[in-house]
Design a binder for these strands. Structure first.
Length: 271
DNA sequence: CCGGACGCCTGTCGGC
DNA sequence: TGCCGACAGGCGTCCG
């Protein structure tokens, strides 16, 4: 589900609801996420204040005095802040209750997400240690993308989705960025010229930026911290549009498999 | 090191 | 109507 724009939208929605608040109760309904929710999570959090909410890649990092609560939304996860939480429904797994009565609820049908505690002694955490640059920060330069793709025979789309090269770009936005850059997803990364990679880096920035502005993409499950769906899916050029006419030239969009995932491209606009 | 495939899990959809 | 396989916003892990 959530790629960088959806996680960032969640962060922006959640932060003002939780920062400065003290955790008064923790309810774990189901510990069976990607890794078990720590048995002592309540002990770590209760009585502590949430000081900040950061994002690194697709991880949400709740900075709390004494450590960090790491939350990943996996494919189908969502975090919602309720002033008046309804009774627990199917796939609601964890509640954090705050001192003003707000309930921060983690919901995830497929349970590919995670909720972990990072103590200061665990830093740098293995999940965060080897991540590449943030695509919307200065470290993600044309030069960087060129450098890390030299000698790579893997397809450019798979390279874009490799978190060691650049983070946050999942299946939707990899496809959309490649369309905007006019690059076929199947081309070997190492064969692309500096100029084409510069165009791709720019496409990644603009696609992610526009998606954040529209609250992300909602295909099925994703909702933001207030329960609202994203709108960016309405402007997808290729993702899930196989057989439909390209919005630019009218050629039917093609679908292929790469690395067990679907790729979509316009055979005319992308070479 | 690199590249590719496999699970993890539930829900949905299309074909028979 | 029911059953069955394929597929879905991710990613750590294992294999060659």
């Amino acid at each position: 589900m959530p790629e960088l724009p959806e996680v960032e939208t969640t962060r922006r929605g959640v932060a003002p609801r939780v920062v400065g608040r003290r955790v008064t109760a923790v309810r774990v309904y189901d510990r069976r996420l990607r890794w078990p929710v720590p048995a002592d999570l309540a002990k770590r959090l209760k009585g502590r204040t949430i000081e900040r909410v950061d994002r690194r890649s697709k991880y949400l990092l709740f900075r709390i005095d004494g450590g960090t609560l790491l939350v990943h939304l996996g494919m189908t996860g969502s975090l919602r802040a309720y002033s008046d939480a309804p009774t627990r429904r199917a796939h609601d797994h964890v509640d954090l209750v705050l001192d003003d009565g707000t309930t921060l609820r983690y919901h995830d049908p497929r349970r590919f997400g995670a909720m972990l505690w990072i103590a200061p002694a665990d830093e740098p955490h293995p999940l965060l240690r080897d991540l590449g640059p943030e695509p919307l920060e200065a470290a993600f330069t044309d030069e960087h993308l060129w450098h890390v793709t030299r000698g790579r025979r893997a397809a450019i789309k798979l390279a874009l989705m490799d978190n060691r090269l650049v983070v946050g770009v999942g299946n939707i936005y990899a496809n959309e960025a490649l369309f905007r850059a006019g690059i076929r997803p199947t081309i070997a990364a190492g064969k692309l010229s500096r100029a084409r990679l510069a165009r791709l880096a720019q496409a990644v920035r603009t696609v992610l930026g526009e998606a954040i502005a529209k609250g992300g993409s909602t295909l099925r499950d994703y909702v933001d911290s207030e329960g609202a769906r994203g709108a960016f899916q309405l402007t997808h050029y290729v993702y899930a549009r196989q057989g439909s006419p390209c919005r630019v030239c009218g050629t039917p969009i093609r679908q292929v498999r790469q690395g067990q995932r679907s790729s979509f491209y316009c055979p005319t606009c992308q070479r």
